[in-house]
Each structure stands twice: as structure tokens, then as C-alpha cells.
């Protein structure tokens, strides 16, 4: 992305306009988002991946690995920008691509991080990657979490299992801009302690006094001294106040289902609750047709949606 395009990036625009004309990125600002989404693609071909090298592989859990990748073109790496919640197509030439949230912080100029659970053809191949291997990246894509709209609100992040990957970039961003937000609570649960990702982050979050971090596992586990309970149960116990609060959740469908019920009981309005969807994707740019939920494509109209928006959509998640 050249300087020209960087100048139109909303974050940059805001920095330029300063106190007088803060340009708020609205959820409906499709044009701008499309420009952001296109920004990473050179030569005007949105199907052409950008070559990147694997610089680090982290075994998060037995079946989840995080890959830190760096664009082979340094200029691209330096000028790459994305909004928290946006995704990318990470692929191997000869195997194919799959969609993952970019879960490194947007302020990170050294690498992009993607966390991959081994499940199918592409993810199994990705799990064979080692340092120095070349991958293709098409990013950023999709509609992000509207983190600037959330300013001065309390934030409640609810995550289960690999769902943490979808929210990590957003959490990191909000923590980097901590003064812009009210209370910040992170609730993260997994089946067992072994299934918790981002141990390196959890430690840091738990050590911070200005945020509340609750880690839980589904059942008692040898050596685990922390909280025990399913995420929805713990959420209910926490009983967060809905006033001026945004809840962002991601995790297994069953967890989301029950958490939504809890949030409803706690009187959270549909507009206050955000989630991020996943679907089988191919093009990632709203053309191939397959990732739709009713009239919305998860790849361009999402993956971030509010509950209010999801209620409008037909039931084919």
C-alpha cells in the first residue's frame, strides 16, 4: 500500500485532522472499508496473494498453532495497515487458502499473526509450515469491530477456545488505547488449560490492574487452580452491567448460543452485542457467492456483526 493510500486510512485521517475534525469510522462506511480492504493488494488484482515468510511458529495448544508471517517485500510490511477484527486469506500455494482473523496488533509492523486450528485440507497443510516457508496472504478483508465507536464505553470480551483468535487484535488495540475506554473485562474459557491459547498474553493481562481478566476451564483439571465453569455459566455469575457496555463474543456455536441467552437476561440490547462469524470461503471478496447468510456475505459485510443485524438475517448460520 503506497503512501497515497495510507493517507486515506481512517486512522491516519484522524491523526491528521487532530482534535478539530475527528473522523469517526461508522459501521456503514462501506466505501472506506472497501478501500482499506483493497489497500493491501498490489497490481489491482484482489485474487493475487502477497508473498510472506513464516518468521515464527507457536504451538498454542495440541491442535492450534499461531503463525507469525512477514511480507517478503519490506515496503509492503511497513505500510500494511488493518482494523481490528479484519481477516485475511492465509494460503499455501498448491493447497489453497483459508480465512483467519489477523490477530496481531494493528500497531505491529513486524509481522501478522494468524492462529490456525487443524481441521481440514488447508489447515492440515498449514500446520506443516516451518520457519522460512513461503505463504500467500490476501489481507485485510472484511468489516472490523468499530473500536472508535466504542470509545468511552465499557468493554466485555467473551471468548471460548479458538474464538480468542478472533478477538485478540481487538483486545490488543483497546489495551494500547486503554485511556479511551471505560472498564475492560476479558472472559476466556476453554475445555482444559491445555486448550487455552495465547498464554503469553494471558499472563500479561492478568498482571494488569486496569483490566479484569477471568480465565476459566470447563471442568476440574489436575494442576489447575483457577476458575472452573463453562463460559456462559461464569458470565452469568459475573453478571456484568449492560449500561454503556459493549459485549464482543466469539467461540464455539454452543457457547455463543448460551452466552447470548445470558446477555439477554442481563438486559443487553442487541445493538450492544457483537460477534464474528465464520463460513467456508474461497474468494474472500464477496464474489464467489458461497459465504452468504441470506443477503449478507460474511467476507465483506462481516465477519463482524451485531446481534441486531444477525436477527435480521435468515437462519442459515
Amino acid at each position: 500500500m503506497g503512501d497515497e493510500q495510507k493517507a486515506t486510512h481512517p486512522a491516519a485521517a484522524e491523526e491528521k485532522s487532530g482534535a478539530s475534525g475527528r473522523r469517526t469510522l461508522t459501521f456503514d462506511d462501506v466505501e472506506t472499508l472497501a478501500a482499506i480492504a483493497r489497500a493491501g493488494h498490489r497490481s489491482g488484482n484482489p485474487y493475487l496473494p502477497e508473498m510472506a515468510s513464516v518468521v515464527e511458529v507457536i504451538q498454542e495448544t495440541p491442535n492450534i498453532k499461531s503463525f507469525r508471517v512477514r511480507f517478503t517485500d519490506d515496503e509492503v510490511m511497513q505500510s500494511f495497515a488493518f482494523e481490528p477484527g479484519q481477516v485475511g486469506q492465509l494460503g499455501m500455494y498448491g493447497v489453497g487458502e483459508s480465512t483467519f482473523a489477523i490477530n496481531s496488533s494493528p500497531s505491529n509492523n513486524d509481522y501478522l499473526q494468524f492462529s490456525v486450528m487443524q481441521a481440514g485440507e488447508v489447515t492440515t497443510a498449514l500446520h506443516q509450515l516451518s520457519m522460512g516457508d513461503k505463504v500467500g496472504v490476501r489481507a485485510p478483508m472484511g468489516r472490523p469491530f468499530p473500536v472508535r465507536e466504542w470509545r468511552d464505553k465499557n468493554l466485555l470480551f467473551i471468548m471460548g477456545g479458538i474464538g480468542s483468535a478472533a478477538l485478540r487484535a481487538t483486545i490488543l488495540y483497546c489495551l494500547e488505547h486503554r485511556e479511551d475506554y471505560g472498564e475492560v473485562t476479558i472472559l476466556y474459557g476453554a475445555r482444559t488449560p491445555v486448550d487455552l491459547t495465547f498464554g503469553y498474553d494471558i499472563e500479561e493481562w492478568q498482571s494488569r490492574e486496569d483490566i479484569s481478566t477471568i480465565i476459566t476451564v470447563d471442568a476440574e483439571f489436575p494442576g489447575w487452580e483457577g476458575r472452573v465453569g463453562f463460559v456462559p455459566t461464569v458470565l452469568e455469575e459475573l453478571a456484568p452491567e449492560p449500561d454503556n457496555t459493549i459485549a464482543a463474543l466469539c467461540g464455539p456455536p454452543i457457547m455463543i448460543k448460551f452466552c447470548l441467552q445470558v446477555l439477554e437476561r442481563l438486559q443487553f440490547a442487541d445493538e450492544q452485542v457483537y460477534t464474528t462469524l465464520e463460513k467456508r470461503m474461497k474468494c474472500g471478496i464477496g464474489i464467489c457467492g458461497r459465504c452468504n447468510v441470506g443477503p449478507k456475505y460474511v467476507c465483506v459485510d462481516g465477519p463482524v456483526f451485531t446481534m441486531a443485524e444477525l436477527r435480521e438475517l435468515p437462519d442459515e448460520l
Binding site: Y47, Y93, G94, G96, E97, K282, C283, C288, G289, R290
Partner: peptide, 20 residues
């Protein structure tokens, strides 16, 4: 609507778009 698949023979191949 279309599909995107990688078709490989040994060490080289192509990424194809095909009708789906």
C-alpha cells in the same frame, strides 16, 4: 458462483477458478 482450487503436479501447479 465459482470455486478456487490449487491443482498441482509435483512441484508446480496453478490456482484455478472454476464454475461451482
Amino acid at each position: 458462483c465459482f470455486n478456487v482450487t490449487d491443482e498441482v503436479v509435483e512441484t508446480q501447479g496453478e490456482r484455478l477458478r472454476s464454475w461451482d
